[in-house]
Design a protein around this nucleic acid. Structure first.
Lengths: 217, 217
DNA sequence: CTGCATTTTGACCAACTAGTCAAGTTTTTG
DNA sequence: CAAAAACTTGACTAGTTGGTCAAAATGCAG
C-alpha cells in the first residue's frame, strides 16, 4: 500500500509516459511554428502532423481537438512572456529596472518571435481563448507594477508619466520587431539579419524611452 | 464618331454603373469589418454577403474571388494609412512636425481600428498580398522621411536617435491601441471608452517620445 | 413599351478539413 | 515471455466553404 503508483488498473492520476512526453513536445513545437504563421483558422491539423512527423490520427491521440493544442501553446507561452514584468524590483533603481525590462523584452522578441506572433494574433482577433487570462492574471500584475511606477514618479525618480501607457509603449515597441518583422525587413533590408542589429535596436529604444521618462529639473 | 462612349457593343473601357458603385461599397464595408476581425482564412464569403445584405453569388458577381475583395481593401487602406507620414514637412519645426504626426496616428487608430487590424493581420502573417507595396511604396517614403529626421539630428534640433527606430516606435505605439484593443481594455477597463481617453493617451505618448528625442544640452 | 444588358439567385459541386474508428504494431510489465 | 496497455495508422465520414451555372428578375436606352 506504500506506493500508490504501482496499481495496475488505470486510475485518474494519468501519469505521462516517456513517449507521451516526447510526442507532445514534438506536436507543440510544430504547432507553434504553424499557428504563429497562419493563425488558428489558417492552420490545418495535417500541417502540424506533417511537421511533427506523425500521422493525423496519432496527433489526435495526444490532443483530441485542434483547439487543445492551440490553448496549451498559449498557456505555455503566456507565463514565459509575462515573467520579465514580474521581475521588476520595486526597491531597485527605476531607470535601471526599466532598462533591464526593456532589454529583456527585446531579447525575447528576437529569440522567440513565433511566441510573440502567436500571442499578437490571438489578441488581434479579440483574444477569444485567453480573455480570462488577461483579466485574471495580466491585469493584476500590471496593476501591481503600475503602482510601483506611480510611486517612483511620486518620489521624483521618474518624470510624470502615466504608468499604464508607459507599459503599453514598452510592449508595443519591443514586440513590434517580432510581430512586424516583414515590414521591418522591407524597410531596413539586410541590416536586420546582421550581428549588431539587436543591440542597435535596444540602444535606440532605450535611448528614447529612458530619456523620455528621466526626471527633469 | 464624336462620342466613343456611345457605342452599344460592350468594349474594354468598362464603365461602372450606379448599382455597381453602391454594391461594391457595400461589400467592401462589410468585408473590412469581417476580415479585420477574423483574418483572411477565418472569414467566409457567406459572412461578408450576409453583412452586405446580398446573396453569395451576387457578391461573387462583383468580386469573382475572395482574394479580390481582400486585396482591394488593403490597397484602399494602405494609401490612407500612410498619408500622414508623407505630410511631415522637412522645413517645419521637428518637434512640432512629429507631434502632429503622432497625434494624427493616434486619432486614426481610434477612428479606423479595423483598418489598422486588417493591416496588422496581413503583416503578422508575412504580408503575402502586400510585400510588393512595402518595398516599392513604403520603403522609399520611409527612407525619405528618415533622411529628413537624420538631417534634423545633424542640425542639433533633435537628440541623436536612429530615425528608422524612431518611426517604428511611433507606429508600434500608436497602432497598439487599435490592434491590441482587447488587451488595453482588459487592463484599463471602462476607462477606455470614456471621453478623454484618446487625449490622455496622446498626452502620455507625446510626453515620452518627444522628451525622449528633444535635444539635450 | 420593347429588347438588350445588367443584376440577382437557388441549386449545385468539388475540394478541403476536423475528427472517428477499427484494426494493427510496439512497448511495458508482471 | 506472455498479456495488457499504450501507441500508430489507413480508410472513412460529415460538415464546411469557395466558386459555378443557368435561369429568372430588373434596369435602361431608344
Amino acid at each position: 500500500m506504500a506506493r500508490a503508483t504501482k496499481k495496475k488498473t488505470s486510475e485518474t492520476p494519468e501519469k505521462t509516459t516517456r513517449i507521451q512526453e516526447i510526442n507532445r513536445r514534438l506536436i507543440l513545437d510544430a504547432a507553434l511554428d504553424v499557428f504563429s504563421t497562419y493563425g488558428f483558422r489558417g492552420t490545418t491539423i495535417d500541417q502540424i502532423a506533417d511537421k511533427a512527423g506523425m500521422s493525423k490520427p496519432n496527433l489526435l491521440y495526444y490532443f483530441p481537438r485542434k483547439q487543445n493544442i492551440y490553448v496549451t501553446l498559449l498557456e505555455e507561452t503566456l507565463e514565459e512572456w509575462l515573467a520579465p514584468l514580474a521581475e521588476i524590483d520595486p526597491e531597485g533603481d527605476p531607470i535601471e529596472q526599466l532598462r533591464k525590462y526593456i532589454t529583456l523584452k527585446i531579447r525575447m522578441s528576437e529569440s522567440h518571435p513565433e511566441a510573440s506572433r502567436l500571442f499578437a494574433n490571438e489578441v488581434l482577433h479579440g483574444a477569444p481563448a485567453i480573455s480570462e487570462f488577461l483579466s485574471k492574471h495580466l491585469k493584476p500584475l500590471v496593476d501591481d507594477k503600475a503602482a510601483v511606477i506611480r510611486r517612483w514618479v511620486g518620489e521624483g525618480k521618474l518624470a510624470p508619466v502615466d504608468p499604464y501607457h508607459l507599459i503599453f509603449m514598452i510592449w508595443a515597441t519591443t514586440q513590434h520587431y517580432a510581430d512586424f518583422d516583414v515590414q521591418v525587413r522591407a524597410i531596413m533590408g539586410n541590416q536586420v539579419g546582421r550581428p549588431g542589429f539587436r543591440e542597435q535596436t535596444a540602444q535606440a529604444v532605450l535611448s528614447i524611452i529612458l530619456n523620455g521618462i528621466r526626471p527633469r529639473g
